[in-house]
Computed example of a mutant assay.
Amino acid sequence: MRRSLLLFLPFLFALLPFLPLGVWRAFLLDAGLFVLLYTALALSWDLVARTGQLSLAHGAFFGLGAYGAGLLVPHLGTLPGLVLGSLLAGLGALVLGSVTLRLHGLYFAIASLAFSEVLRTLALKLPFTGGPIGLPVPPPFGGASPWAAYYLALAVFLLALALSLWAEWSPFRLAQAACRQSEAVARVLGVRVVRVKLWSLFLGSVVAGLAGGVYGMKTLFLSPYDAFSLARAVEALVIPIFGGLYTTLGPLLGGVALVSLEQALRLWIQEGYLVIYGAILILVILFLPRGLVGVLGRRRG
């Protein structure tokens, strides 16, 4: 069941542009693009959470990738700008991790939140970022294709999915689980705890930076309040909790369900849709502590 879903959902998104969607085509492809980006962001957050760290810095990595791509794409082109922007996010993760990864629990969460606020302040003050006015971003490949951003989002999603599956099925999973359960025991077993955490944070930040870069090229404009928003970090956290932590399928199901629900509520209800969205989140967290993956596990049992 789980492997079928892991194959079916990526195949569905790859097939979506070729389906006869009629008058809903533009809306559904836009909604699908945001589902892909936020699911990739959630998968990248879960990759860090598997080491036991509560990161609130994914909004910062998203923003670094977005601004890096926004500044570099006009000079280097779409793909080089996107890749270098994601590496800028990875560099930010290495700086953050080298200083804070010896912290635990809420201490690391507070440090990562402070890192996000520092970057947002810099984006507001530095002249080349556009300051509070914002930064215009060119469309991918100069606007040659109206669906280029969708295919880039699909590529970022597939990369995030591949990294998550690698971390779930490779021996690296054991090192992450040991760090999450007990760092002292992990060290006794020979696990290099800081290296495992730093590697996880770096991989997660690169994916988050790629998602931010594609987001900027889709929206065509960036502001520090949007790109470095705390809401972005919270969404990256909520989606895996909704779907199921420490798995690949959990963030995948949570991203598809939550982002699709948000888009549908925004279309049908408009004003006040966040009230219903928040109520659904509360009910799921209260009554489904293991998320949607837990429901699938019970049905299989």
Rank of each mutant, 00 (worst) to 15 (best):
A178S: 10
R173N: 05
W166L: 15
V194S: 14
F172A: 01
R173M: 03
A184N: 12
L201E: 05
P171K: 06
E168P: 07
S182K: 02
A177L: 13
A178I: 04
S200I: 03
R173V: 02
V194H: 12
R173L: 10
R195Q: 13
A178E: 00
Q176M: 15
A177R: 13
L189G: 10
L201P: 02
W166T: 06
E183D: 11
R187E: 15
R180E: 01
S182N: 14
L198T: 00
R192K: 14
L174D: 01
W199Y: 11
A177P: 02
R195H: 13
K197E: 03
G190N: 10
L165N: 04
K197C: 07
S170V: 05
L163Q: 12
V191D: 02
Q181A: 10
V193I: 07
V193A: 03
Q181C: 03
Q181T: 13
L165P: 02
G190C: 10
R187A: 13
V191M: 05
S170M: 08
Q176P: 09
V196W: 09
V188E: 08
S182G: 01
G190T: 08
L189Q: 08
A178V: 01
A177G: 02
A167Y: 13
Q181S: 12
A177Y: 06
A167G: 09
R195G: 04
G190I: 06
S170W: 04
Q181W: 01
G190S: 10
V185P: 03
A186S: 15
L189I: 02
A175W: 11
E183I: 06
R192L: 11
L163R: 10
A175K: 08
K197G: 06
V194R: 13
S170R: 06
R195S: 13
S164R: 12
L201Q: 09
Q181P: 00
W169F: 15
W199K: 04
V185N: 00
W166F: 14
A162Y: 13
L161A: 09
L174R: 06
